[in-house]
Design a protein around this nucleic acid. Structure first.
Lengths: 141, 141
DNA sequence: CTGGGTGCAAAGTATTTGCATGAAC
DNA sequence: GTTCATGCAAATACTTTGCACCCAG
């Protein structure tokens, strides 16, 4: 699914924001657009990219919005080893493959049966899983 | 394996530090002792606990040591959702179960075949895995 | 119109750095 | 004796907050 900077998708993000009790401001739409363009992004890169459209946007606005969207479960923070966190639009169960050479992060679907197994064996009710595999990607090998 | 504050174990940590090109200072031995006592700990708790033995220890010393021991692959940082990172002595493949109610973090061994599968299918050479399952632990249910 | 959002500047937190002294080996 | 570690204070980096103004609904 590719998100484009057009009316159809802007309306989609508008709707999504409203469903999450957030007003659809141009800054928020731009944040969502950029995140969906890259899949996941860190605060600094997001700030740099969004400044091209909103030259006077404040870093505080970025932080406030990332936090409110995260609180409303629209975004999720992915904490990565040896790098800054990235943020992405929430979606279900996938692993992150982080290349230690080029820094690139890919999403991969994952068989979650291991987790339900742990869940059952240890009577631990799993609500959310974070799986990050660090290594060397295909291109860098 | 239980680590105790006795000569045997202190010598062990002394050796481990030297094997990692680090001098075995009392502060470092205390840090390792405390980490092994709890399994994993965040910077603030570590600082508070270590002050009981070294009342004048500096936070900078904690940071420097955690960083050097992490650089030398003696410790590893575990980044957790919605909480500060904890540090633990490096050991192989285990998942972290983090209780969203009481905040406790448990280690569980994990079947890594899923990861080798991803590895093979996507030609990604996995060096390290971080698996964090967030949910509700047995006691808090 | 009303409530929430934005941008700025300032305040907080967290982490790192420089340097003189001191300890490990 | 050398080299590296410690502890302090200062610097830097990162994130949040307060407030006046503004815009989405």
């Amino acid at each position: 699914m590719v998100f484009l900077w057009n009316n159809y998708k802007m309306n989609t993000f508008t709707d999504i924001l409203r469903e999450h009790n957030l007003k659809a401001t141009p800054q928020r739409l731009a944040i969502l657009h950029i995140i969906s363009k890259y899949g996941h992004i860190n605060i600094d890169s997001l700030y740099n990219e969004i400044k091209e459209q909103f030259s006077s946007i404040s870093l505080a606005t970025i932080y406030k919005n990332i936090n409110s969207m995260t609180d409303e479960k629209l975004l999720v923070e992915v904490k990565l080893p040896n790098t800054k966190s990235v943020y992405e639009i929430i979606k279900e169960g996938h692993a992150h493959l982080k290349c230690e050479a080029c820094g690139d992060v890919e999403d991969r679907s994952i068989d979650t049966s291991v987790f339900s197994k742990i869940s059952n064996e240890h009577h631990f009710k799993v609500n959310h899983s974070d799986v990050i595999l660090s290594g060397i990607c295909k291109n860098c090998q």
